[in-house]
Amino acid sequence: MTTETHDPIFDTVCGVISRIAKVPPETVRADAPVSGLQNVDSIVLLEIIVTVENELGIEIDEEELFAIDTVGEFVAACRRLVAAP
């Protein structure tokens, strides 16, 4: 977990989740299931996704979203899109 907390993409995702779900950032863990995050229902999740997309300048395909189970997988998907040409 230590390495991920210094990852700027993880930090962005974690910051957005924390801000929108109104939970302390330290409670957002990479292995947490996205559908089980505190204060996050399907509508909140969409607000989180769109905000992350805006902040990172990416767009995540809906099909890809459905394959994401954990915060870590969400971060990995963001990382791939940020790195893509």
Binding site: I43, L46, T51, N54, E62, E63
Partner: peptide, 24 residues
């Protein structure tokens, strides 16, 4: 179901894009 959830997700994403833009 998955198919309609995908359509719904696209719909709500466009709403949230608007809201997030307005908020910014």
């Amino acid at each position: 179901n998955r198919e309609f959830s995908l359509r719904k997700t696209r719909h709500f994403k466009s709403i949230y894009r608007n809201l997030v833009r307005k908020k910014a």
